[in-house]
Design a protein around this nucleic acid. Structure first.
Lengths: 218, 218
DNA sequence: AAACGAATATGACTTTCGTCATAACCGATC
DNA sequence: GATCGGTTATGACGAAAGTCATATTCGTTT
């Protein structure tokens, strides 16, 4: 994805030195970042988010008045298109899980290099995500626990569809475009379209939206 | 953490060219990797894991005889100290979640650079983890869903839409085309399209199929 | 071995979708 | 009563979806 405008970045961090330092480094890092005035606590982060509508907020977690997690919740409820990247020194399970549940798109530790922070900002803008390796490990552990023991990994195959057709149906239900499906399955776009046509006919629907609805609803 | 011995790496990948290529690149990358003979399918991966006791297995998912996920499960049950790093071209939710549940410590896509792969291998050896940015995003989404709503992560699917927009959303969810919607509401097709565009943006989705899915699911 | 059908794969072509610029309308505010 | 923000409305145009004809591969049947 290419953006014509600059990425508007807000830093919420109570220590002025760190706040200014990161802002300076980031603006040196690349000229496509527009650094907004820094927020010194959670309350101010909310206020500045409302006022400046940042694309990305670098959010510290331990801040006066309103902490970073509460600020994240309130900002995302009001401005859901904002991307919050947590940047903190602490990495307890509780903090990590709460931050992610609050809607943080990435969780970095303060020992991250500035180019990693910049790369993560670009990633979240593109709908991706970034986790420090040790944070990722904790998330994966909890993830496994939450999912519980798998019994049968097999998806119920939709009757009448071939294996290939089912693969494609699954991706359609995830909202993928034909191009994306083609890339994922190493098929030409034309091939995917043809599969879609076949599936549409078999399921007696007119277009992929109806198909997705039917597949979800049964 | 510093290790005195080399890191013993096993590659399980059915395409010989890719297998040899990664092995060569990794051994050039750093002299602390000891590359074991490559496994061409899941069955062989299990056999070689038993024989060579690797520290890390780079595991492809789509392989003949036994797939990568089944191989991961069986290897980790027998040799739980092994670290499995998934390296694949596919990134469907199912594959990712199953791989993680099976015990994979990291999940990389094949477009990763060789130094990223090397860094991930070192990370998992140190009890950390590595996820490609797009994979991390999927994990975090599912993670949030599994933990359940903490506050009210309500997306502005119906709320935040005007009355007219909601009428149109309802018809989209019924699988209607823009022409059909226009006839029903006595609007020009162009007008309907414009409404659809607005709704897509408000709901933060890329196309009407995703929109229908989100409207049904939430 | 030849014939056959089902599954898989592809590209040319038409239709539908989605974006963008633009404008009329209306209630609120100054 | 002029201005402003939000809703409603429209069409031109490039992008994506869907149709159709066609080809290959592979297991099964004759």
């Amino acid at each position: 994805m290419s953006r014509t405008e600059k990425v508007r970045v807000l830093i919420a961090e109570d220590q002025a030195l760190i706040r200014e330092g990161i802002a300076t480094l980031l603006s040196q890092q690349n000229d496509d970042f527009e650094m907004l005035p820094g927020a010194a606590d959670g309350e101010q982060a909310i206020e500045f988010a409302r006022r400046y509508r940042p694309d990305v907020i670098l959010m510290d977690l331990q801040m006066p008045r309103v902490d970073g997690i509460a600020a994240t919740q309130r900002i995302l409820r009001e401005l859901p298109q904002t991307h919050v990247v947590v940047l903190t020194t602490f990495e307890t399970n509780d903090l990590i899980f709460e931050a992610v549940s609050a809607g943080a798109k990435a969780y970095l530790l303060k020992d991250a290099r500035i180019d990693e922070i910049a790369a993560t900002i670009r990633a979240v803008i593109n709908g991706q995500s970034g986790l420090s390796p040790s944070v990722a490990a904790r998330i994966l552990d909890e993830f496994k626990r939450l999912r519980g023991p798998r019994v049968s990994a097999k998806l119920p195959v939709r009757d009448g569809l071939t294996a290939r057709e089912n693969e494609i149906l699954t991706l359609i239900v995830e909202g993928k475009s034909n191009t994306e499906i083609g890339e994922r399955l190493h098929l030409a776009e034309g091939t995917v379209k043809n599969y879609v046509s076949t599936i549409l006919e078999k399921c007696q629907v007119k277009n992929r939206t109806e198909l997705a609805i039917k597949a979800i609803t049964y």
